[in-house]
Design a protein around this nucleic acid. Structure first.
Lengths: 229, 229
DNA sequence: ACAAATTTAGACACCCTTGTCCAAATGGTC
DNA sequence: GACCATTTGGACAAGGGTGTCTAAATTTGT
């Protein structure tokens, strides 16, 4: 197929590019209209492609849908793991660092296009494709949550936090940090940056009040690095 | 229409009963299939009614959908307020009381049939009917969240909690208490009672570690009622 | 420039769904 | 029993969607 791996960004410029633009357009239409309401003609038009080309790349509507979900899952997971890599291991200002991490997670993985689309498709069609979304559950939360938990465990081991169960703490961290965005998420909206920062700030403060080392009630911050597991 | 307000439970037994069973069946079908995929014939069949009867009660598919959402919103709201009335104002064991409240809220309002259906419809079709779901947002979270916040404010005023912003605390309480149910909710599932209790217990414990009066680090519980705002 | 692969536009058969119409059947009320 | 409203089932037109097929146009690799 390919001559010898072209040095530029897009390998087989024509064919694969169309495949991508089809899956991309399909993601948008499936999200807006739902599986039943999605129209192949519309997907083709938004992809800038003829309807027949859609059928050439994906045998039928269902196959196309599955390709969309797999694609989104893969990209979202990559983004989440990339963000987890920025988790503050040796924090200077723990509160600020955790807020930054939470904001990055939200902006880069949950509120961006892929995250929003994947969430909507899971909510909308999750029950119709049990095995497809079971796969997502394993590859997504099943791998990312423990990864975040491991980071919190490390912070606790380093004496920066007091945590009984890192898995519970990780889930609660996510719950707290998104506490003020629930309604917006429900309705499929995208919270603006201010809202994300606000929710993260409030969430992290509460999280640290529960799991932090309580530097001082007077407001002065001193951090001593001793582990007392 | 009615002869003279029949003394029994169902006023015009035939007509209104059918209206209910139609809306009921429609809720189920709309949730399973989405608006576009929902089939009026199927709704009629599940309601045990002829298709024409569906059109007699609700002019068209969209009107029927709107009736379903309004119906669910109303019933869910009633349930939530009824549960808020059981919020522990003068707690004996604050932790146990808050856990109980959280479990009731989840089991009676969020995990039950109505709650599950309403959530799904909001997620699935929220963007298609902005004004309808804006109404839900005002009547639902817009009224219930402040009501919960007021209860927490009262607990704080009574010296049982230390809370800066009761609104934030209320949202975080809900976020914490549901932290472990997110994935299940996403996929449209219904968590079993054990999961609900577990999530509520972990959530309330963390909540109290952040906002509680820290009775003692040794495990003994003494509660002094003094307000130190 | 040539040959192979891919894309395109259009027409097509097939099926399903919505919403309407109507005549017959049903059910409650006096 | 008679009258009223409601329900029923069936037929119906209109519209829209999926997936297939074909021949012509275009792109791609050599």
């Amino acid at each position: 197929m390919r001559p010898g791996v072209s040095p530029d960004t897009f390998p087989p410029r024509g064919h694969e590019a169309k495949r991508l633009s089809i899956v991309d357009a399909a993601a948008g239409v499936f999200c807006r209209e739902g599986f039943a309401g999605a129209n192949i003609d519309l997907i083709a038009a938004e992809a800038g492609v003829s309807r027949q080309t859609v059928y050439n790349h994906h045998r039928d509507k269902e196959k196309l849908f599955i390709a969309v979900v797999r694609d989104l899952t893969e990209r979202c997971n990559a983004g989440i793991f990339a963000t987890i890599a920025t988790f503050p291991d040796q924090p200077g200002d723990l509160e600020a660092d955790l807020i930054g991490f939470a904001v990055r997670l939200n902006q880069n993985c949950i509120c961006n296009r892929d995250g929003k689309f994947l969430r909507k498709l899971i909510q909308t069609e999750g029950e119709r494709y049990p095995e497809l979304f079971a796969e997502w559950r394993e590859q997504g939360p099943g791998r990312t949550w423990p990864a975040i938990a491991a980071r919190f465990a490390r912070l606790a081991y380093g004496g920066h936090l007091t945590i009984d169960d890192p898995d519970v703490a990780a889930r609660q961290f996510l719950g707290l940090v998104n506490a003020e965005l629930q309604t917006t998420f429900m309705l499929g909206g995208t919270p603006c940056e201010d809202e994300v920062v606000q929710s993260a700030t409030n969430g992290v403060r509460t999280f640290l009040r529960a799991f932090g080392k309580h530097p001082s009630p007077a407001g002065v911050k001193k951090h001593t690095a001793l582990a007392n597991a």
